[in-house]
Design a protein around this nucleic acid. Structure first.
Lengths: 150, 150
DNA sequence: ACTTATAATGAGAACGAGTCTCAATTGCAG
DNA sequence: CTGCAATTGAGACTCGTTCTCATTATAAGT
């Protein structure tokens, strides 16, 4: 099924209305080419001539999180600010590689991580739900530029 | 070396003063028995009769982060709020197991994760700095209570 | 199509975690 | 002991996010 239709279906299941705003916000999210933050989304929508309000953006993001189509990435261990969102249908991976030089985020998908999580939880008697791995590393470009991190 | 002395040494190295407030805040952090948030720390200090201001708490936490004695944990994928802090000398692990039932956090330390991170970054030409793994799972107690997560 | 009930929206007020300001206080070198 | 620079406390401020409520839009029933 198309991802747009999954969203429509989710709205129907909840008895929620299929509004223009929700469609436009979701379309904009599909256009994002990397994990994005609210500011980026707001700016993009304004650029497209949409005058969707901040409140509706936040409300729709919340909906998408609940639908499981979208997920958040907590980035730096220092800043709890500036949450990034990532579309699950587009970016399968729940794990991220963060460049400590330029801040660029890319997705990674490694079966071995999942296996480790399974082992760890089983050993401790926990029931695994999900996991999230963030690796902080310097990307090749930043290394070439001679950027060092404090 | 005692961890208290490491902090004192760090202050000296920076030419900073050894104040009562800094000592008391650090003592309170040592008393915390799990990763804690600012509210918990504030409450504990008040309980102890300290009237340290919010601003000083935040300033000292920042100092401790810079010293490398303390680190932050970004917890839930949903809430970017309520940053947790964890003492490095006390809790060695940088990886955490979060119960999706009661929210309890425990530290885990698995060499296999480190190895995976090394492999992944090497493959992509990145230079590994650090990583942070969060596993979300239901703890044995919550399973026994029949708690299910949405 | 036309109503009607009700969900959703927009604008801006409110909230709250964290930061900043600046006058008062404290640590410490001399 | 003194003087001065670093530190502190109290509260103002910031800014991302949420809430409020009057207005608007959707969809079910006629």
């Amino acid at each position: 099924m198309e991802i747009q239709q999954q969203f429509e279906q989710f709205l129907s299941q909840r008895g929620m209305k299929h509004t223009n705003e929700r469609r436009e916000i979701f379309r904009a999210i599909l256009d994002m080419d990397a994990p994005f933050d609210v500011d980026k989304l707001l700016f993009y929508l304004k650029q497209q001539g949409e005058k969707t309000s901040k409140a509706t953006i936040y409300r729709t993001l919340q909906l998408l999180l609940e639908s499981g189509l979208l997920r958040t990435i907590s980035l730096s261990p220092a800043a709890a600010r500036d949450t990034l969102y990532s579309l699950c249908g587009k970016y399968r991976a729940y794990d991220h590689l963060v460049c400590t030089g330029c801040g660029k985020v890319r997705d990674i998908e490694k079966q071995q991580i999942c296996l480790s999580c399974q082992t760890i939880t089983k050993e401790l008697g926990y029931k695994l739900e999900s996991h999230s791995l963030r690796i902080f590393a310097l990307c090749p470009e930043c290394q070439a530029k001679g950027i060092k991190t404090c």
